[in-house]
């Protein structure tokens, strides 16, 4: 594990003295009546200042669970079993909830999946943002309002909307307001879970561009979670591919897209139809993501992998490095396999 994180740090921390966020061997389980769900299993990566990391993978592979673990916003039945989450070098895993509250939103914030539904319908949107602000910074109401106006400006929302109710916003406008709320305290890291999945392409384009600008302006680091490879290609500098709770490939976005090592990464890229360019035959990835209560032995992808050989079924795959990325695989693609 330490080997992987060392590598990720080398990849991610090039621009600044140390990564803003470093995750080492993080493991989180949910206990359920049916058994233990291994939702996050030995995940390591790091994100440098101003960097954007994209997390991709199929539904149920643990992307949202990982995001919630990073904020320690977990349900009762969840438990962080091992690993460290270093915010500017300080491990937040052992922090009690009271201390955690100082960090959440002010240092690390999140835009939730289907966030537009997370606004409270009975309060004006601006009031909800002011409330989020005032938990952390004590300020006069005038001051808070001024800040909200700045935030609306930042995400390109008409300030006349500040004192309106959520139902008066369109889906795209609500999504922007939620992003404004996450940015309110200028956190070091923002995690956005499928921030635009429910929106149409033109609104998605606006929001992704705004988030990119904000990142550049404030030097913020971001983690984008998405199942859309094209979105990830556009917004992130680094990409991590998740499968059944584990990171199976990680590295610079350009390298991962140009030369995927892991067969799963390759399948994800070619299962996507494109609007421009060659009209290629879509590859169909057979089967479904594994049951996370009793995951397959060896490489968890082996029941669906066209390259699987005997060691894949029984032994944990080794780390293969190539250019600016690595993957965990016995038979990496693109090596005469």
């Amino acid at each position: 594990m330490s080997e992987r994180s060392g590598d990720a740090e080398a990849l991610g921390g090039g621009r600044s003295p140390g990564p803003v966020l470093a995750v080492e061997g993080l493991t989180m389980h949910y206990s359920t009546r049916a058994g233990v769900v291994r939702a996050v299993d030995g995940v390591s990566f790091s994100v440098g200042k101003g960097q954007a990391l994209g997390l991709v993978g199929e539904s149920g592979c643990g992307k949202s669970s990982l995001a919630l673990t990073l904020l320690k916003l977990l349900p009762e039945n969840a438990q962080i079993l091992s690993g460290r989450i270093l915010l500017d070098g300080m491990d937040i895993v052992p922090l009690p909830e009271e201390r955690m509250r100082e960090y959440r939103w002010s240092r690390i914030a999140m835009v939730f999946q289907a966030a537009m539904n997370s606004l409270n319908p009975v309060y004006r949107v601006g009031e909800q943002i002011i409330e989020a602000l005032e938990v952390h910074v004590e300020s006069a109401r005038e001051e808070s309002l001024r800040r909200v106006r700045e935030l609306y400006d930042l995400v390109n929302l008409d300030p006349s909307l500040i004192m309106r109710y959520p139902h008066e916003y369109s889906g795209g406008m609500k999504q922007r307001a939620v992003i404004a709320m996450a940015l309110a305290c200028e956190p070091d890291v923002v995690i956005a879970d499928e921030p635009t999945t429910a929106l149409d392409v033109i609104v998605q384009d606006h929001i992704l561009r705004e988030m990119k600008n904000v990142r550049a302006e404030l030097g913020m680091s971001m983690i984008y979670v998405s199942h859309d490879m094209a979105v990830i290609a556009e917004v992130s500098d680094m990409v991590g591919v998740m499968y059944a709770g584990r990171l199976v490939e990680l590295g610079s976005t350009v390298d991962v897209f140009r030369d995927p090592i892991h067969p799963y990464t390759r399948a994800l890229t070619s299962a996507f139809p494109s609007v421009t360019g060659e009209k290629h035959e879509l590859t169909v990835l057979p089967g479904e993501p594994p049951n996370m209560i009793d995951p397959p032995s060896g490489c968890r992808f082996h029941p669906r992998c066209p390259y699987a050989t005997d060691p894949c079924r029984s032994e944990t795959p080794p780390i293969v490095r190539r250019g600016g990325h690595w993957a965990a695989c016995w038979n990496p693609t693109g090596e005469g396999a």
């Binding site: 392409v201 384009d205 490879m229 094209a230 290609a233 556009e234 992130s236 976005t253 350009v254 897209f257």
Partner: peptide, 8 residues
């Protein structure tokens, strides 16, 4: 507005 699956 359609995202392009090519980071370059």
């Amino acid at each position: 507005a359609v995202p392009v699956p090519d980071p370059t």
